[in-house]
């Protein structure tokens, strides 16, 4: 398990977390490259179907932020 690197799919709200991830870039914060971002208009758009789809497609973890 020590080498285990989870593959993460993250759903980011366009108005806050997506912008925050942009700012993390502006501030050159460094983090691992195993996150794939799906921009959503608002976490209100988040549906249980998207969690399941992400897991089905092989994600180890799903992260919703907004």
């Amino acid at each position: 398990m020590a080498d285990f690197e989870p593959k993460i799919v993250s759903f980011l709200c366009n108005w806050c977390s997506y912008g925050a991830a942009d700012l993390a870039g502006v501030g050159r914060a460094q983090y691992p490259a195993n996150v794939r971002v799906v921009r959503i208009p608002c976490t209100g758009r988040m549906s249980p179907k998207f969690f399941l789809a992400a897991l089905r497609e092989g994600a180890d973890a799903v992260w919703v932020s907004g």
Binding site: D22, L23, A24, G25, R28, A29, Q30, Y31, A33
Partner: peptide
């Protein structure tokens, strides 16, 4: 987004 979410934050890899 391959800058703010990528090149800027994964410089080492």
């Amino acid at each position: 987004n391959i800058r703010n979410h990528n090149s800027w934050v994964h410089k080492e890899t």
